[in-house]
Computed example of a mutant assay.
Amino acid sequence: MVTDHENNIDRIRRIADYLECFLEEDFRLLAGATQSTIEAWRKRGKGPAYIRLGNRILYPRDAVADHLKSLSRERAPRFEGIL
Rank of each mutant, 00 (worst) to 15 (best):
D66Y: 06
A63D: 07
A65R: 10
H67S: 05
I57L: 08
L53H: 13
V64S: 01
P48L: 08
L68G: 02
A63H: 03
R75E: 07
S72F: 09
G54C: 11
P48I: 04
K46A: 08
A76P: 01
R56I: 08
R44G: 05
W41S: 04
A65N: 03
L53T: 02
P60W: 09
G45K: 11
R42N: 05
Y50L: 15
R75D: 05
L58Q: 01
G47L: 05
I51T: 03
R61H: 07
R56M: 14
R61M: 06
G54V: 07
R56V: 06
A63N: 02
R75M: 09
G47N: 07
K43S: 12
P48E: 03
G54A: 10
N55T: 07
N55G: 14
S72W: 09
H67Q: 02
Y59H: 08
G54K: 11
I57D: 01
R52Q: 15
R73I: 06
K69A: 14
H67V: 01
P60A: 11
N55R: 15
I51V: 13
L71S: 03
Y50I: 03
P60H: 08
A49D: 14
Y50E: 04
S70N: 11
P48R: 05
S70Q: 11
S70L: 11
K43H: 13
R56D: 04
I51S: 06
P48F: 07
Y50P: 02
S72H: 10
S70V: 00
R75C: 04
R56C: 09
V64L: 06
L71P: 00
W41L: 08
A65H: 06
H67T: 00
N55H: 13
L71W: 02
D66S: 06
G47A: 10
K46Q: 12
R44C: 08
K43Q: 13
P60R: 07
R73Y: 09
L71G: 06
P48H: 05
H67I: 00
D62P: 01
A49N: 13
R42P: 07
Y59G: 01
I51Y: 15
G54F: 10
G45F: 13
R56Q: 14
